[in-house]
Amino acid sequence: MSVRQQGCRQQLLKKLVETSGKSVKDLAEEIGISHGLLKRLLSGNYEFVVKEEYRSAICSYFEISDDELFPFVAAN
């Protein structure tokens, strides 16, 4: 059985944010998520599974698959 990993693939998200050329605050606003959530995901300080609506918004904005940025991991 697999479950979503907590947080996201931090390095990939950092790269996407950097290549956007926008500030984290402006980007979060454009995506439709809170600045705090995006900041925590980028810093690796998000210890929960990201809600589907937020995953969808982020992935849609960056035109990337949900599984690529928010992968499944084997459940213990």
Rank of each mutant, 00 (worst) to 15 (best):
S34E: 07
E47N: 15
Q11E: 14
F70V: 03
L12V: 13
N45H: 15
V73F: 04
L38N: 01
A74E: 15
D66T: 08
L37C: 02
A57I: 04
Q11N: 12
C59F: 05
H35F: 14
S23C: 07
K22A: 08
H35E: 11
N45C: 06
F70C: 03
E52M: 06
Y46D: 06
V73N: 01
V3R: 15
S56V: 07
E47P: 02
Q11V: 11
L42A: 12
I33V: 15
K39W: 15
L37K: 00
D67R: 09
D66V: 05
A57M: 10
L27P: 01
E68Y: 10
A57W: 00
S2Y: 09
N76M: 09
Q6R: 15
L12W: 00
I33H: 10
G21F: 03
I64L: 08
I64N: 04
L69V: 03
S23Q: 02
Y54P: 00
F48Y: 13
G32P: 07
G32E: 12
Y61Q: 04
L27Q: 01
I31H: 11
A57V: 06
I58A: 02
M1C: 05
V24T: 08
K51T: 05
V24R: 02
S60Q: 15
A28F: 00
V3K: 15
K25F: 02
L12P: 00
V17D: 04
F72N: 09
K22W: 09
L38F: 06
K25R: 10
G32S: 12
L38K: 01
A75I: 06
Q5V: 11
S56T: 13
S23H: 05
G7K: 05
V3I: 14
G36F: 09
L27G: 01
G36A: 12
K22F: 05
S43R: 15
E53T: 08
I31M: 13
Y61C: 07
V3E: 15
F48G: 00
R55F: 06
L16V: 11
M1E: 09
A28V: 05
S43W: 08
Q5L: 10
L37M: 07
F62R: 07
G7T: 04
Y54I: 01
E47Q: 13
A57R: 05
C8L: 14
K22T: 03
S56C: 05
L69F: 01
L69N: 00
C8H: 03
I64T: 09
R40C: 04
S2H: 07
L27H: 02
L13G: 01
H35P: 01
A75D: 12
D67N: 13
K51V: 03
I64K: 08
V17Y: 08
D26M: 06
L13D: 00
K14Y: 06
Q6M: 12
S60P: 04
R55H: 07
E63G: 09
N76I: 10
K15S: 10
E30P: 04
A75S: 12
E53Y: 12
E18S: 11
P71Y: 12
K15H: 02
